[in-house]
Computed example of a mutant assay.
Amino acid sequence: MRGFRWPPPPDGGPRTWGPGPGAPRTGRPALPDPETEVVATPHGVRLEQLVTGSGDPVTVFAHGLGNGIATTRPFGSGVTGRRIFFQFRGHGRSDAPPGAWTYADLARDLRAVADLGGATRAFGASLGAGALCHLLGGSPERFDRLVLFLPAALDQPRGPDARERISGLLAAVASGDASAVAEAVAVELPPTVRNTPAGWAYLRQRLDHLLRDGLAPGLATLPEQAPLPDRAALAAVTAPALVIGCLGDDLHPASVAEELAAALPRATLHVYDRPGILWSDRADLRRRISDFLNG
């Protein structure tokens, strides 16, 4: 079995290890990051954001733990109107207030960005889906349309495997060791993508962001918490919702997506039959999201 190796070959490789032909060595250089801004919020936490598109409606995009603007932008590629991508506290150039944080804090970040930008639709991925659920529990009529992608928890904390993976990523980023961070991030890639040009490009982008900006220690306790004390709070949500899960994802069990869809009165559930859907079903996923939000 050819394993993952870091760093990649100096010529941009990649090289495979062991007998067998080498992989293609072509690939485009990564595009520069777009220029973002840091905005002040009413609750005193400055948050980094990127606004693209124009006109109405306005959609806010909330990312997963350890991710950010770069990883949520593809979800909005076909969405009409203005799109607001932002970084939760402790990510990117957003503030990292001292102390441990809760889903209420994340929901406050999401609500502030949505209110300042006039967003009427919301997308949440993983941790962002949890923050969105918490927000909806207190303000069920805040948005007109919702997409919740790979929800990781509802009214129970995440499992031990997820906690271990996340704590490992936080420790690797804190160490500043590029190889350790690469090993922690590589598990996000399906085996078929590792040691390919696309896989290396993804790792390079993730490492650039994580080693440049870091991740705040306040994120460490979030996997031990649940977004909601009781899923019954979502029964008052009036907006149509699209809930997307997939089978075989240890960090985002399909059962959580099913439970969330059952808790939302006007939810449509779609479950992909294998993990790694950002690589295997990317076009279908983006079409599904844009068709729903633009409907």
Rank of each mutant, 00 (worst) to 15 (best):
D177K: 02
L169P: 01
T192H: 12
V173S: 08
T196D: 09
N195Y: 02
P190W: 04
S175R: 03
V181R: 12
A182V: 08
R194F: 12
A171V: 00
T192V: 15
S179P: 06
A182E: 05
V181E: 07
A180V: 05
L189Q: 03
G199K: 12
P191M: 03
A184I: 03
S179C: 09
V187N: 07
V187R: 13
P190G: 10
A182I: 01
A186D: 09
L170N: 00
V185G: 14
D177H: 02
V185S: 15
W200M: 02
V181G: 00
V173W: 08
A178Q: 03
L169S: 01
T196V: 07
S179F: 04
E183H: 11
A198K: 08
N195M: 10
S175L: 07
A182F: 10
G176Q: 14
L189N: 05
S179K: 07
G176P: 02
P190H: 10
L170R: 11
L170Y: 06
P190T: 06
A174Y: 06
T192D: 02
V181Y: 08
P191S: 15
S175Q: 04
A171C: 00
P191I: 04
N195A: 11
V173H: 08
R194N: 03
S179A: 15
V187W: 04
V193R: 11
A178F: 01
V185K: 14
A172E: 06
E183K: 06
W200L: 15
V181F: 06
A171K: 10
A174R: 14
E183V: 15
V181P: 05
A186T: 06
E188Y: 13
V173K: 14
A174N: 01
T196Y: 02
S179M: 08
V185F: 13
A184G: 02
G199T: 14
L170K: 06
V193S: 00
E183P: 06
L189H: 05
V185N: 15
G168K: 00
T196P: 04
P190K: 12
D177S: 03
V193W: 00
G176R: 05
V187G: 08
S179I: 15
V187E: 01
W200T: 11
E188T: 11
A198P: 10
E188L: 15
A198N: 05
P190A: 10
G168N: 10
V173T: 08
N195G: 01
P197R: 05
A178R: 11
A184F: 00
S179H: 12
A174V: 05
A174T: 11
A174Q: 06
G168S: 09
T192K: 02
A198E: 14
L170I: 02
G168F: 02
T192R: 14
N195L: 13
N195D: 15
P191Q: 07
A186H: 01
L189P: 00
S175G: 04
P197L: 13
S179W: 13
A172S: 04
P197S: 06
A198V: 15
G176S: 06
T196W: 01
T196S: 11
A182Y: 12
R194L: 10
G176V: 08
